[in-house]
Computed example of a mutant assay.
Amino acid sequence: MDCPAQHYAPSPHTYTGLPDLDYPFHDKAVTVTTCGRICYNRKKINLSQVFAGQTVGIKQVEDHIWLVSFVDYDLGYFDDETCRLEPLQNPFGPKVLPMSPV
């Protein structure tokens, strides 16, 4: 029945944040704005405020179609004419196998 403070010891390691992200296989690396957008050719593409301040990689995969990636995860595609992002399946979600027919 001790208090947690009686057993707590601060970590000797200091948190320095994420290292600088590099996207060597992408065409550009862009920083997401505080409102969660990517600015590309004076156009604004809504991504998510979750990525605010982070660097994402964009790569052209077809005419006017770009892939958006964060670290090793592909997030979705956007069309540089309509500026609409189409997300991919959640790469961080649970991996559930379909039930087999009986």
Rank of each mutant, 00 (worst) to 15 (best):
M1Q: 15
M1E: 15
M1I: 15
D2C: 07
P4Q: 05
P4L: 11
A5G: 14
Q6K: 15
Q6V: 13
Y8C: 11
A9L: 14
S11E: 02
S11F: 10
P12S: 14
H13E: 15
H13I: 13
T14V: 12
T16F: 12
T16R: 13
T16P: 00
L18G: 04
L18P: 01
L18N: 06
P19G: 07
P19W: 05
P19N: 10
P19H: 09
D20C: 03
D20V: 11
D20H: 07
L21R: 10
L21F: 01
L21S: 11
D22L: 12
D22I: 09
P24E: 02
P24F: 00
F25Q: 08
H26S: 06
H26G: 02
H26F: 07
D27E: 09
D27F: 04
D27C: 03
K28N: 09
K28I: 05
A29H: 02
A29T: 08
V30W: 03
T31V: 06
T31P: 00
T31E: 06
T33G: 01
T34S: 05
T34K: 10
T34A: 07
C35E: 14
C35F: 10
R37D: 03
I38A: 01
I38V: 02
I38G: 00
C39R: 04
Y40L: 00
Y40C: 00
N41L: 07
R42I: 06
K43A: 09
K43T: 09
K44T: 06
I45F: 09
N46G: 08
N46W: 11
N46I: 09
N46Y: 14
Q49W: 00
Q49T: 09
F51G: 04
A52R: 02
G53Q: 04
Q54A: 10
Q54I: 08
Q54W: 12
Q54R: 15
T55N: 10
V56Q: 01
I58G: 00
V61E: 04
V61H: 01
D63I: 14
H64W: 08
H64D: 15
I65P: 00
I65R: 05
I65E: 06
I65S: 01
L67R: 04
V68H: 03
F70P: 00
F70H: 06
F70G: 10
F70W: 08
V71S: 14
V71I: 15
V71M: 14
D72L: 13
D72M: 12
Y73S: 13
Y73W: 14
Y73C: 11
Y73E: 12
D74K: 14
D74W: 07
G76F: 01
Y77A: 02
Y77K: 02
Y77S: 00
Y77Q: 05
Y77T: 03
F78W: 05
F78E: 00
F78N: 04
D79C: 11
D80F: 02
D80S: 05
E81G: 02
T82I: 11
T82L: 09
T82R: 06
T82E: 07
R84P: 06
R84N: 12
L85Q: 04
E86R: 13
P87F: 11
L88V: 12
L88T: 13
L88I: 11
L88E: 13
Q89T: 15
Q89N: 14
Q89V: 13
Q89P: 07
N90E: 11
P91H: 02
F92V: 12
F92Y: 12
G93K: 12
P94K: 14
P94C: 14
P94S: 15
V96G: 04
L97C: 05
L97E: 12
S100N: 08
P101Y: 03
V102D: 11
V102E: 11
